[in-house]
């Protein structure tokens, strides 16, 4: 932007309401200097078209830059979202509008409530452990000498970089019901085999474990960035006051990281609630439907059973749950932001 040019620095600061007007005139000057032929041809600023004025507005440029993204979001997010709402209100053959019929049907099914419960267990426990492991490892890495940090950061990010479908398949081989590599080691050490995927409770544990393995590096990198932004002077002042490591963590690190923790948790909660790959590849919702989450159950009803409207209704149940969580978390973030400001 021309705001950095030497000539502009000499200009008196504008009144609040005139800000954009003044910047606009500065931009106009700069454009003229970039296009010498314009002045030579006798083209005066007043003769410029309305379109070129419009294009030189800061908000217009910003909008144009965002346009490809807006188009993608409109086509791939907003349209499908509204279409799925429309779809969820149709009958199975998609020939008749049935209002909230699919939703009320789902609410009357035991299996659906089990899916709700399992999705909550899956998402909440996975996000909790991802946050905990991310926080611990971020501290450990932050305390490493600068030379070794990059190497560890790179290695610990590997689970997050591998495509989830591939890593889930790898984990499935490790948990294979008949030829599990883990069980081979356990029996070699004299322990009993663990029914990783054939017992519903172990199967729940296994899918949560894989999700934590995959997602913890995201928390790690976010928390590491947050840790590095905490001013060193605060720790020095606390050390002078005689604070130990735990007190520094509780009274300095944690309050300074609260916003990033909240936003990371919210983001992860959304992604974990909507997870499909891990459960579908490892258990496909079994045994006894006891590992189904919203996405896999929606796939079962919508694609395998051919009831797209019911599948759409199932997946839409995530929306209010996540919206409520988002409102509370973001309200907390704003509140803390105001306190800090």
């Amino acid at each position: 932007m021309p705001a950095s040019s030497a000539g502009i620095r000499d200009v008196e600061p504008p009144a609040r309401g005139d800000r954009y007007k003044v910047e606009d005139s500065r931009m106009a000057d700069t454009v003229q200097s970039w296009v010498p032929g314009l002045q030579q041809a006798g083209v005066r600023p007043s003769a410029r078209s309305g379109l070129s004025k419009f294009l030189r507005q800061r908000s217009t440029i910003a909008f144009l830059f965002c346009l490809p993204l807006i188009a993608i979001i409109t086509c791939l997010v907003i349209y499908p979202a509204f279409y799925s709402i429309y779809l969820s209100m149709l009958n199975k053959a998609q020939t008749r509008f049935i209002g909230l019929g699919n939703f009320s049907y789902l609410l009357s099914r035991d299996v659906f409530w089990m899916v709700v419960q399992q999705s909550a267990i899956f998402a909440l426990s996975a996000v909790f452990f991802k946050a905990l492991i991310g926080l611990i490892t971020a501290h450990l890495i932050n305390n490493l000498p600068a030379k070794g940090q990059r190497k560890w950061r790179g290695m610990l990010l590997v689970p997050w970089v591998i495509p989830l479908a591939l890593s889930s398949l790898g984990w499935w081989w490790l948990f294979d019901p008949t030829h599990s590599a883990f069980n081979w080691i356990l029996t070699g050490l004299g322990f009993d085999e663990v029914p990783w995927l054939s017992n519903p409770y172990w199967a729940r544990f296994s899918v949560i474990l894989v999700n934590v393995w995959y997602g913890a590096p995201f928390f790690l990198i976010m928390y590491l960035a947050a840790l590095k932004s905490v001013p060193e002077q605060l720790y020095e002042a606390a050390a002078i006051d005689g604070a130990n490591a735990w007190q520094k963590f509780i009274h300095i690190t944690l309050p300074m990281m609260r916003n990033i923790i909240a936003i990371t948790v919210l983001f992860s909660l959304i992604v974990t609630f909507a997870n499909f790959d891990i459960v579908q590849i490892m258990t496909a919702g079994g045994p006894r439907n006891m590992t189904h989450v919203f996405a896999t159950y929606a796939f079962l009803l919508g694609i395998r059973s051919g009831d797209l409207p019911l599948g759409a209704a199932t997946s839409l149940f995530m929306f209010p749950i996540l919206a409520i969580a988002a409102v509370f978390i973001l309200r907390g973030v704003r509140k803390r932001g105001r306190e800090i400001g």
């Binding site: 019901p177 030829h179 029914p195 990783w196 054939s198 199967a203 258990t283 079994g286 045994p287 006894r288």
Partner: peptide, 19 residues
């Protein structure tokens, strides 16, 4: 039956006899 049959996909029984 072996206890893992509850977690078998459609290839589980194939692997069982082939093994």
């Amino acid at each position: 039956n072996p206890p893992e049959v509850y977690a078998w996909d459609d290839a589980g029984n194939n692997r069982w006899i082939i093994s």
